[in-house]
Amino acid sequence: MHDAFRQILDPVGRADPYRYFGALRDEPVARQEDGSYVVSTYREIVALLHDPRVSSDRRNLGDGGSVSPELPVSFIGLDPPEHDRLRRLAMRHFGPPHAPGTVERLRPHMLEITTGLIDALAGRNRADLVDEVAYPLPVAVICRLLGVPQEDEPHFHALADEIIETLGPGEEDRAERERARQEKGLELARYLRGLAEARGREPREDMLSGLIADGGMTTQEVVATSVLLLIAGHETTINLIANGMLTFLRHPELLVRLREEPRLIIPAVEELLRYEPPVQFISSRVALDDIQIAGTTIPAGSPIVLAVAAGSRDPAHLADPDGFHLDRPRNEHLGFGGGAHYCFGAPLARLEAQIVLNELIRRLRNPRLVADPPPYRPSAVLRGPRHLLVDFDEVVG
């Protein structure tokens, strides 16, 4: 395994993987001992994200890539035209052209929840911003949007956490991780199947009911889409919010400027998606044919790992990539991937992060980190603090 890639995956270096990115990019396409290829430079990653010879279907892997026939495959793990059909049906209830106002209509609800979470910190001088703010908001929003009872949250969150911890690339225990992912995925799918069947009998005003009523998806496809939205709809946003507050607290001048110019929270979130992205790797790609790129041939059947966090900090792509700049004139990042699989939930994640970060900056007086670095979650793929303890003088109205 490439030494830099091994160091990035090592939990010991989870707090600062970026110090290894330069060495990783020195070999833009690097073959690993397990036969996978890690791609780490911006231009090459973008090319592969748009290359039809690169599959997102794990069933095209020759070793251990098969999935249980009981386990539904979501459209994120399929290729066109099936991917396009299912994504289009899901988007009918989420965004344009059929539902252009869905995300924006959630704004008052998001602000109300955020206000209540921050109000609950009043009278104290310390809080864990992950457990008390960054986590509860996206969970409440995705539950409301999809139609999952929020009282079931502890159950599905535990399963989602366990599934995510199986996603890391490069480890030697790939077969074991596949087995664990299938086991936990099946448990989550069974829960959502029961919920889908209940919505079929008694529809409500939620996305799950809409997907069933449309009739364009089978029950299996509805369940697969729901699993995807439930996991992706909150896990990545938690990290985006937590990484954002950590970055701002490390740069007090950013806090001052954002407090004085709240409108800058929009470019601030875009820069966070580049500088501290919640998704560091896309590790589920497979070469369908021999692919020549950056002087290397990736053989057909090989797993491909796209190091999108390294690509977004590629000095060949933009100036001062390791600096955080609110005023970047063109911030073309890989924070939401790209190509046909560009993040389905990007509009929702952007709005949630903008609202929560803006309110935390505005209402916490003199916030400061208790520990730097904070403890991190184990995953190298979905990277973010497990906890973010912050001291502050008071909560203002």
Rank of each mutant, 00 (worst) to 15 (best):
Ile298Asn: 12
His317Ser: 15
Pro81Ser: 11
Leu264Ser: 10
Arg53Thr: 10
Asp173Thr: 11
Glu261Asp: 15
Gly13Ala: 11
Gln32Ala: 05
Gly384Met: 02
Pro17Lys: 04
Val12Ile: 06
Pro385Trp: 00
Leu61Tyr: 13
Val46Trp: 06
Pro329His: 06
Phe248Glu: 02
Arg383Gly: 10
Leu188Ile: 01
Gly200Met: 10
Arg368His: 12
Glu104Ile: 03
His234Ile: 00
His109Asn: 08
Glu261Thr: 11
Leu49His: 11
Gly244Asn: 07
Ala158Asn: 05
Asp314Phe: 00
Phe344His: 09
Gly101Phe: 00
Gly185Met: 13
Pro100Cys: 09
Glu359Leu: 08
Asp290Lys: 05
Val29Thr: 12
Pro80Ala: 14
Ala287Tyr: 01
Ile8Val: 12
Ser36Ala: 14
Glu205Arg: 15
Tyr191Cys: 02
Ile231Phe: 10
Leu208Ser: 14
Arg190Gln: 09
Pro378Ile: 03
Gly339Val: 06
Phe281Glu: 07
Ile241Lys: 01
Asn243His: 12
Asp152Gly: 07
Pro96Gly: 02
Ser226Met: 13
Leu129Val: 06
Gly397Arg: 04
Ala30Cys: 11
Leu49Trp: 08
Leu364Gly: 04
Glu260His: 04
Ser283Thr: 09
Phe5Cys: 08
Ile238His: 11
Arg25Val: 04
His50Met: 09
Gly116Arg: 12
Glu197Lys: 12
Ala189His: 01
Arg377Ser: 12
Ala353Pro: 04
Arg204Asp: 00
Arg6Asn: 11
Arg92Glu: 06
Ser40Ala: 15
Ala30Tyr: 00
Pro321Glu: 03
Gln32Phe: 03
Gly168Ala: 14
Asp10Arg: 07
Ile241Met: 09
Gly301Pro: 00
Glu171Tyr: 13
Arg53Met: 04
Ala300Asn: 10
Val133Arg: 11
Val148Leu: 11
Thr296Cys: 12
Glu197Cys: 05
Leu195Ala: 04
Ala160Lys: 02
Pro11Thr: 07
Ala175Ser: 12
Leu186Ile: 05
Arg14His: 13
Ile118Leu: 11
Leu61Ala: 05
His2Tyr: 00
Gly170Trp: 00
Ser284Phe: 15
Glu271His: 08
Pro262Gly: 06
Asp16Glu: 14
Asp119Lys: 04
Ser68Leu: 11
Arg328Pro: 01
Ser74Cys: 08
